[in-house]
């Protein structure tokens, strides 16, 4: 027998279920008066630096149907590539930009929408710069553990080509699943496919 390692095990995940809104977006679902507003519904708390953009999309299941009970969260750097977080070690982020958004899918269409800014570049562990990206975290009924992916920008060809993660994706035809397309001047479209031929690349990071 060897000595025992005394590390704790991470608490296992369980599905967020169909009623995730009660806890996470209670005003949205009609549980009024407990919280003054739904957390993550506003990412901008004042005038922000950089280009303001919108991100819209849907989360689509293996039959091609949009999830209407999904909850999507995003986390990203500000326009200067800094995170509004005590863990940020490289400088001070834009104080008027939280970097974190949370949006339930629309009850009829499943569509989510974030009013945010285009993120700057953030370094990889070895110091190389990553292409601008937004972290996505997706939970819903039927999803046993939150799905983590990233949205990159289709109009950032040069940065994307050098990105330490994008450039390491073996199946090159899947890179496109991580690229948001321009859908107007400052609007981006990012659909996430859970399963099947166009399945989005999901991360284990």
């Amino acid at each position: 027998m060897a000595q025992k390692l005394d590390y704790l095990k991470e608490t296992p995940s369980q599905t967020a279920g169909p009623y995730v809104h009660i806890g996470c977006t209670s005003n949205f679902i009609g549980v009024q008066g407990v919280y003054d507003r739904d957390l993550g519904s506003e990412m901008k708390t004042g005038p922000v630096k950089g280009q303001e953009i919108t991100i819209t999309g849907r989360v689509i299941d293996g039959t091609g149907t949009a999830l209407r009970d999904v909850l999507v969260e995003i986390w990203q750097a500000d326009a200067g590539g800094l995170h509004n977080s005590p863990q940020e070690t490289r400088g001070k982020a834009d104080a008027n930009f939280t970097g974190w958004g949370r949006c339930p899918g629309h009850p009829e269409t499943g569509e989510f929408r974030f009013d945010t800014v285009k993120p700057g570049r953030v370094p990889f562990g070895d110091g190389r710069m990553q292409a601008p990206h937004v972290t996505f975290w997706i939970v819903a009924r039927g999803i046993n553990i939150g799905l983590h992916t990233r949205m990159y920008f289709a109009d950032e060809d040069a940065a994307n080509a050098d990105d330490p993660i994008l450039s390491r994706i073996e199946h090159r035809n899947r890179v496109a699943t991580l690229l948001a397309s321009r859908d107007g001047d400052a609007a981006y479209r990012f659909d996430i496919v859970l399963q099947g031929e166009d399945e989005t690349v999901f991360f284990d990071m």
């Binding site: 999803i143 799905l147 993660i165 859970l194 399963q195």
Partner: peptide, 11 residues
């Protein structure tokens, strides 16, 4: 129908 089938990308 809500479970990804491809391997996760580890980094």
């Amino acid at each position: 129908k809500r479970s990804p089938q491809s391997a996760l990308l580890s980094f």
